[in-house]
């Protein structure tokens, strides 16, 4: 085993200090050491987006990021996003639009959707599609995911 390196960062707004092996990925650290099991292993090589997290407000594939590179950073996982007002809005939209089937890709898609809509609150459908091209979903055919993200971006006035 390689030597452990102590790092410190903020995880979902809370300061954390841990010692991690040099070769450990951020994904392994989050899942195995910090109970963030909402961040999923899908491929381990940055192709599927299931492990998407936010580092200093930019989404990354946590499987490609070394845990030690989290030192001094501000990390958000799906557990953190879900606790924000926007996360709740997005959650409701995903649920109501039927955007979740097996749900394994959903946390990564939620993280990426937040990024797309933060970058451009008026993102068009095509821009949302382009923003999600790194997130694979095998169940839904994406359409309902796009519907949900569009709805979260442009909440329609309540109708009765």
């Amino acid at each position: 085993m390689s030597a452990l390196i102590e790092i410190e960062f903020r995880l979902n707004g809370i300061s954390r200090r841990v010692s991690v092996p040099l070769q450990m990925s951020a994904l392994e650290m989050l899942r195995d050491m910090m109970g963030q099991h909402g961040t999923k292993y899908g491929c381990g090589e940055g192709e599927c987006g299931a492990c998407t997290i936010s580092v200093d407000h930019r989404t990354v594939n946590s499987c490609l990021k070394f845990a030690v590179d989290c030192d001094g950073r501000d990390i958000q996982t799906i557990e953190g996003l879900a606790a924000t007002p926007f996360g709740e809005t997005l959650n409701r939209a995903m649920v109501e639009h039927g955007a979740v089937q097996c749900g394994f890709c959903t946390p990564g898609i939620m993280m990426q959707a937040q990024q797309v809509l933060t970058d451009n609150p008026d993102a068009s459908r095509a821009q949302i599609q382009r923003g999600l091209e790194g997130n694979l979903c095998r169940c839904t055919g994406y359409r309902k995911i796009l519907d949900a993200i569009e709805a979260a971006a442009h909440p329609s006035p309540a109708v009765d």
């Binding site: 909402g38 557990e79 995903m94 394994f104």
Partner: peptide, 21 residues
């Protein structure tokens, strides 16, 4: 009707514990 899946809220908030978890 359009009935949302019962398991969707947990899945969309990262709470669902899959075999892997």
């Amino acid at each position: 009707r359009r009935v949302p899946k019962l398991d969707a809220p947990d899945k969309a908030s990262g709470r669902t514990r899959y075999l892997h978890d």
